[in-house]
């Protein structure tokens, strides 16, 4: 069996997540040969006849698109690994600024730029927007996560190599969280650094912006277990992905409104910086943007003005 791990516009964290199988990687490479993975081995082009290709990172420039089409043609099964590949992820956040602003900032305004401040022109051009891998080619499996967590990958990857099926939970982070709902009085939105959260009770009920109810599971609620509100890095829960009338922002508002009995308008007024608190992991995804009620399109328009 030949496997490959392609890296598009990503941080390479998802390739490292595969290495995070620790000793289990020895069992994996016994069954399968990694024939191409730019982050961890020095092979320049993916060969023909790849059985499973894991693609990580989003599609942001022309080179990403070309490499994606190449590996799709040379692989039997394509798995979009990580939130950038599945939903655009952090790479998709680049859509909030115009190309000129981005290039200006990176090549002229950052402290470490060379004094002549030239913007390179001999690099692959940006596409007009970021794409999730699934928006460009047919994908056989999606494994979200930023990066996908060890425990989940340990259950998925060996089974995938062996051609077995797995049956994992596909609910939201709340289902994995061990907190129970505490008493809710005088709800106001709290920033993460305000006060100290009670370890036993639901963070959302305590006023913190925990995106657990709207986020896909798989991480065993690792952040709420350490008193940190969920940031939604696993992408949206399946009910949000499915329903055109639901998205991360309006469902978070609705959940808070249901729990606190406050009108949705009041709750929405307290939310701040919606682009970075609600949509940081889903900006590049056409599926998430296509919803009539999604705020992504207006946020991008605002940012690019």
């Amino acid at each position: 069996m030949k496997i490959a791990i392609e890296e598009l516009a990503g941080c390479s964290g998802c390739t490292i997540a595969v290495l995070d199988l620790h000793e289990m990687i020895l069992d994996v490479i016994e069954q399968a040969e990694i024939v191409y993975s730019p982050v961890i081995m020095d092979v320049k082009e993916p060969p023909e006849g790849i059985d499973i290709a894991f693609v990580t990172g989003a599609v942001r420039n022309a080179e990403n698109e070309e490499r994606l089409k190449t590996i799709r043609a040379r692989a039997n099964t394509l798995v979009a690994l990580g939130t950038c590949a599945v939903y655009g992820g952090i790479s998709g956040l680049s859509m909030l600024s115009s190309r000129e602003d981005l290039f200006n900032y990176v090549y002229r305004e950052v402290d470490t730029v060379p004094p002549d401040g030239t913007i390179p022109t001999d690099v692959p051009p940006f596409l007009y927007r970021a794409f999730a891998v699934g928006d460009k080619v047919k994908v056989d499996y999606f494994i979200p996560g930023c990066p996908p967590k060890e425990n989940r990958l340990r259950q998925i990857l060996p089974a995938m190599m062996a051609g077995d099926r797995v049956s994992l939970s596909r609910k939201s982070v709340c289902s994995e969280c061990d907190r129970i709902m505490g008493p809710i009085e005088n709800w106001t939105l709290k920033r993460r650094f305000e006060g100290e959260p009670d370890r036993e009770y639901c963070l959302l009920g305590q006023g913190y912006l925990c995106l657990g109810p709207v986020t896909f599971c798989g991480c065993e609620a690792a952040c709420p277990a350490k008193n940190v509100p969920c940031h939604g890095c696993n992408g949206p829960s399946l009910d949000i992905l499915r329903e055109p009338c639901r998205d991360i922002f309006n469902m978070t508002v609705r959940r808070i409104s249901d729990l606190t009995d406050r009108p949705e308008k009041e709750v929405a007024a307290e939310l701040y910086d919606v682009a970075h608190t609600m949509y940081p992991f889903t900006m590049g995804s056409q599926v998430m943007e296509d919803k009539e009620i999604s705020k992504i399109r207006e946020l991008i328009k605002e940012g690019n003005r």
Binding site: G134, F142, I143, I156, L241
Partner: peptide
Amino acid sequence: MKVCRMLNRVI
């Protein structure tokens, strides 16, 4: 159909 296919393929 695009969303439906994606839903069926999320692990």
